[in-house]
Structures are given as C-alpha cells and as structure tokens.
Design a protein around this nucleic acid. Structure first.
Length: 110
DNA sequence: AACTTGACAGCAG
DNA sequence: GCTGCTGCCAAGT
C-alpha cells in the first residue's frame, strides 16, 4: 500500500506549460501569451508563474520565453536577466537595449 | 475557505 | 514613448 509519496506532483497546468516551452527549438523564442493561447487560456500570469517554478531547468528552456513586446522579461537566479540575455545571444538570438532584434522573425509559433 | 502574490498583456493618461 | 491601472488564472500562505 503505497502511502502517498512525497512526489511533488505538479498540476496538469504546470506540466502543460513546461511541455509547451520544451517545444521551442534553439535560436527561437516565444511569448507567455502565445503559450497561454496554446494551452487555451488567458492566464499569462499563471504561465509565467509556472515557468518560474520549473524544476526541469535544462530540459525546459524557459529562457526562450519572453514578453510580447520582445522584451526579455525575467529569469531566476542571481543576475537572472543578464544570464537570460547571454543564453539567448549564445543561441543566435541577438539582443539590443534589452529587447530582441527581429523578434517577430525569431518568434516561434506552435 | 479567503486573500495576496506573480518569470504578463493590453489600454488609458 | 513611458508610467500606471486593470484583467486574466493559478498557486501559495
């Protein structure tokens, strides 16, 4: 009888968000709003919250998720935003003035 | 069970 | 063009 294990069962919503982010290929970016729309909801805030709580760091490239205006948004850890810029720049996404260059072009569509 | 917070987005001033 | 408020939904306290 298996007692309830301490398995941190993330809610279906969270898993859906991580799966959506996981589909973003390298050198590509998407917005929280797009993910929300892909999930069929308007809860862009909830999507952002889910991304911040993402325990699958390398598997879920949440650094490829930015604001709808092409701004970087936020990230977790010290020097978070700066690190996010570096990661994106390293993947071929050019950033200028804290915003993505040719954002609409690099924007990935589900 | 209720209130507050939160990795946003859109519109008004 | 920037700042501020509102709306959205879920998770945490």
């Amino acid at each position: 009888m298996a007692a309830q294990q301490h398995t941190v069962t993330a809610t279906p919503f969270q898993q859906a968000v991580w799966e959506a982010i996981r589909q973003i290929p390298t050198g590509r970016v998407t917005t929280y709003g797009d993910i929300a729309a892909y999930l069929g909801t308007k809860a862009v805030r909830a999507v952002g919250t889910a991304a911040g709580r993402n325990p699958n760091a390398p598997q879920v490239p949440c650094h490829r998720v930015v604001c709808a205006d092409g701004k970087i948004g936020k990230y977790s850890g010290p020097g978070a935003v700066k690190r996010k810029k570096e990661l994106l720049s390293h993947e071929g996404v050019e950033i200028a003035g804290g915003k993505i260059v040719d954002f609409e072009t690099l924007r990935y569509r589900f």
